[in-house]
Nucleic acid binder design. Sequence first.
DNA 1: GGGCCGGAATTTGCATGCAAGCAAGAGCGG
DNA 2: CCGCTCTTGCTTGCATGCAAATTCCGGCCC
Lengths: 255, 255
Amino acid sequence: MTLSQIPTPLAALIARTPTLDGGRRKGALHGGVVTQLRNLIVTGVLAPGAKLNEREICEQLAVSRTPVREAIKTLIQDGLLHALPNQSAVVAELDLDHVTALIDVVTTIEGLAGELAARNITEEAIAEIGLLHYRMRLHHARDELPGYFEANTAFHRKIVEIAANPVLLWVWDLLALRVDRARYSSNLWPTRWKAAIQEHQGILDALSARDSVKAGEALRQHVRNGLSGLVAALSGEQPPPLQKHPTIDPPADAV
Amino acid sequence: MTLSQIPTPLAALIARTPTLDGGRRKGALHGGVVTQLRNLIVTGVLAPGAKLNEREICEQLAVSRTPVREAIKTLIQDGLLHALPNQSAVVAELDLDHVTALIDVVTTIEGLAGELAARNITEEAIAEIGLLHYRMRLHHARDELPGYFEANTAFHRKIVEIAANPVLLWVWDLLALRVDRARYSSNLWPTRWKAAIQEHQGILDALSARDSVKAGEALRQHVRNGLSGLVAALSGEQPPPLQKHPTIDPPADAV
DNA sequence: GGGCCGGAATTTGCATGCAAGCAAGAGCGG
DNA sequence: CCGCTCTTGCTTGCATGCAAATTCCGGCCC
């Protein structure tokens, strides 16, 4: 349950990032630890309920306890960890209720983003969105899930950026963490792949037409469809996140 | 600019909380510091742009740097502080743009809360909301602003609680911090006081009738009205929060 | 044999020490 | 007199030491 029980994927993920501190800059350790741990949690390498032993993390990441402690506090704020007084922080459970709760909130937030984006969008932004859409289509045609996933996130985030509302972007980023976590945990979502692409096309069209109502509605429908499917997948197969990481190869590389 | 320049209100606020650590429990220091600093920022005692010197805070709060550092990190996450590498964290500016951005997001969030709450609401919850509404009317009749303010926050938060969506509540709490900060900073809002009470009545009626659409719309309108007035107030009187405390000049480094 | 109790080891929480980096001020040159 | 540079002081970032709390394990009692 603790970190040492899953040494291989953890070490692999850590090794992937160049020394955790790229340029040996001074103030980069804290942020690096946050990123590392966040990835481990979001991708499901650290399973829900896992206890985070500070000393162990220190050894694995080769830093002292101070930045690790600060990172843990940060992740608690993000809702990825759950804190108990004088006890190890544990990875937050992936409650089906919580993921279900995400649906309404994320749907609403992205709907608002679509409405605002449709009003503000420029020709340049339309092109950027279109670019991402076709990157997704390419990845889909090539059956490249990780690439598609990345482009998909970029697509949605870009729309929020275009909405030009810093608070909205802030909230979206916080929510995206949880959505990604649930998505990694479900690990079967290509069922809706084709439908998603069509919906993306509809969103792109609405944005291009600067149709605020249509864009908002299209995004709401798309997000609701996606998240509902995700919840269905999660409620269907009970233990998917746990079965994943013993086999090191297929999903762990999806970074 | 630093903490020592405004010793009186800070000391007063700190003194108000019983020793910062009520029962000398062990894991309570960090949270206490967060609460303290958060209050100081939200209420405007720590003006936007103020630099937070760790050592100074340590002395004022009589704790070591470790919990203070962690608290600062937390507040940075909340968006109340802005971080610079190897430099003191500064209190985030109260950008008019950011407050304006809050309008759409908070309006949307509370609208959703109203819709969900209207569906889930029980007789007990209706009574609790009604209680808070009449507490507000009482405070209004007595011209007690602080009491009204507190009840108002409780009223809105209660609706979000009734919505029974943990993610929604989480997001609302985060946003409420910023709303409160802007509200404290504007410090003239009784202009809409009477109108607000009428709108609250409408919200209460819609919730009692379990009319989801109506409740959502009433809340959206109410929140938008309130926040728009707030933005107007903030844009009208440029330096209201700054003039309250000692000496503030554009150079900003007076003693 | 099972459950309860006690103590030791582990672990978090807080305090402090040391080095790197930024900022302000003195000194110098133009 | 003004501007630039270098140096000094202060501040943050990280590492580590110590005490309280929890947990886990062995022994004991029922």
